[in-house]
Amino acid sequence: MVLNLLVDPVSTYTKHSLMLQLKLDARMKLIVTDGVFSMDGNVAPLPEICALAEKYNAMVFIDECHATGFFGKTGRGTEEYFGLQPGKVDIINSTLGNALGVAAGGYTTGPKELISLLRQRARPYLFSNSLPPPVVACASKVFDLLLVSSGYAEKVQANTDRFRSQMTDAGFIIAGENHPICPVMLGDARLASVFADQMLERGIFVIGFSFPVVRKGKARIRVQISASHSFEDIDGTVEAFKQVGKSRQVFVRALSVSKEPTILLKKERLPFSRLHRVIRDLKLGTW
């Protein structure tokens, strides 16, 4: 039995519903989750998940594609972020791309018996070519750099703290926890697209995401912080966000899922369902 938490760590699988499913009679139980959920920057409650797995004799599998190399004190991922002992999670799957910067490939860690089984039975492994030697060499070098020093992970975190605090002070809503994936919540899909275009005109490349990638009314610009960014880069990006927000005469607030997102236009808070009336009145000169 596989319990998949990849869709929504908050509302779809509460602790209570997960416990009910773990109580079901099954020879093997496997809880599968992201370590970090990439669109919102939310971190899975790994200590609680591991505690439930121990109680009900289940295994834990986490996908660390948005944690490997930079998340946690030395970049070792979600286990380290929560201070869990190495090996607390049974299976970890991750990528050599993303933060590690290698062109292709990934890896799976786990018990020796499992790895042997995957080598014999996993179709993506059996029916694919080996990674090119330069890719393997680059990946090996990246891990060497991370093992020697925690400086890269520390720089990412410092940049993240700076960006999130300055953007919050400026009035923007940044979703997720204190993670380098920083979703700037805008709510309206068109606004997110135009906002991203105007950021690019100022030399800042960010991408607007909207439905169906994220929920309706939850459009955002997804900013990803890197160790290669300087504090000057961070400050310049925040300033660009302020300029675009001012030029659009829009100040964005993202509300909870249960409430309708709102937009603040000329100091009056309006739900999106009424925005067309505002535009009509502006055209008629009655604003």
Rank of each mutant, 00 (worst) to 15 (best):
M1I: 10
N4T: 05
N4R: 08
T12W: 03
K15C: 03
H16L: 12
L18F: 02
L24H: 09
R27G: 08
L30A: 09
M39S: 08
D40A: 12
D40F: 08
D40V: 11
P45W: 02
L52R: 09
A53H: 06
K55N: 09
V60T: 12
K73T: 04
G83L: 04
I91D: 05
N93C: 12
S94H: 04
L96P: 04
N98M: 13
A103R: 13
K112E: 14
L114Y: 08
I115G: 03
L117M: 10
Q120G: 09
R121D: 07
R121W: 03
A122C: 15
R123W: 06
S128Y: 07
S130F: 05
L131G: 06
P132M: 05
P134N: 10
A137R: 14
C138E: 14
K141A: 14
L147T: 08
G151Q: 14
G151N: 15
A153Q: 02
E154Y: 02
R162P: 00
R162Q: 13
S165N: 13
Q166T: 04
T168H: 11
G171N: 08
I173P: 00
G176K: 07
C182D: 06
P183L: 13
L186Y: 02
L191V: 15
L191E: 12
D197C: 10
D197M: 12
D197P: 00
V206K: 00
V206A: 14
I207F: 06
F209V: 13
G217T: 07
V223E: 02
Q224A: 11
S226K: 07
H229G: 00
G236W: 01
F241T: 07
F241C: 14
F241M: 13
F241D: 06
Q243K: 13
Q243N: 04
V244N: 04
S247M: 11
R248H: 14
Q249V: 00
F251L: 13
S258C: 00
K259I: 01
E260W: 04
L270F: 04
V278D: 07
V278T: 10
L284T: 01
